[in-house]
Write a protein that binds this DNA or RNA. Structure first.
Lengths: 147, 147
DNA sequence: GTATCTGCAAACTCTTTGCAAAAAC
DNA sequence: GTTTTTGCAAAGAGTTTGCAGATAC
């Protein structure tokens, strides 16, 4: 997996950051919600259940830090807020399906884009380091009118 | 092409919207900047050259309206502001290369994703209506240190 | 003429920042 | 002890909204 507590600790300590209780709690939120794409406000909402003293600014700062250290990956689904999930080095082959009705985000795997990247590097003289692929449409529940 | 003035007029009038001078001017900005991906503030900056009386709120409202009518397409490159370009029905096969250093956005064409979409519909029971593909990396100028 | 549209300023949402107190090592 | 981190409140960026006056048809 790559995102257990010791790996996180190492990533932090390597750059002289500390593993504070707040950071531990925020990390726990993602561990307990592995398939969600949480915004700062959502993380804060969950955190406040057990730790009401933690401030929203701390959540923002922690998410920023974790993204910088490749512990989390920041994403943008065009709804005006940043969203986060555990960083996966295989994120290249992990894309998002975004429901236009209920906003639910699911994932799917594919490695089709590898070939496309090398083509771009040649044709467009552009060095690709990452990509993002999103599909917009309607999830099963919304198509059935259940959501 | 599909985005000449008469087509725009029809799209507006069909829904009882008017083609006001302000809307005409904003449309003109896109006509004169066909390969750019302008933000509201950027459009306003250009508009103010000839029409300093036009307010930023009008620009926002017009861009919103044009996006709703498929005259423009709203995009999000993750820099915290909406960006717009002429809507193309072939937008499906038109993707973006975003330079991580200078922010320059270029485009490239590809229709590889058609097959992927039908695969998703089957595998994930998700009805795809649109997609967005972005590649992040370094443009030629930034790789040479010219930018 | 009347419904739509505009410009302005104020409000709103999400995010960042300054600062003094608290905590980590 | 010193440096990092936190919580709070205030500031910031981008966008939206309410409203009275102006404009398109």
């Amino acid at each position: 997996m790559g995102h257990n507590i010791d790996v996180v600790k190492k990533k932090l300590y390597d750059k002289d950051y500390k593993l504070t209780p707040q950071r531990r709690v925020i990390l726990g939120v993602f561990a307990k919600n592995p398939d969600k794409h949480l915004s700062a406000e959502e993380v804060w909402g969950i955190v406040k259940g057990t730790n009401p003293e933690i401030g929203l600014a701390t959540v923002y700062r922690t998410l920023d830090l974790f993204a910088e250290l490749d512990i989390l990956q920041k994403m943008d689904f065009g709804d005006g807020r940043g969203r986060y999930e555990f960083y996966e080095s295989e994120v290249h082959n992990h894309h998002h399906l975004i429901c236009l009705k209920c906003g639910y985000v699911s994932e799917f795997e594919d490695d089709l884009l590898e070939t496309l990247e090398s083509e771009i590097e040649k044709k467009n003289r552009f060095q690709v380091v990452d990509h993002q692929l999103k599909f917009y449409g309607y999830c099963e529940k919304c198509r059935q009118g259940t959501r």
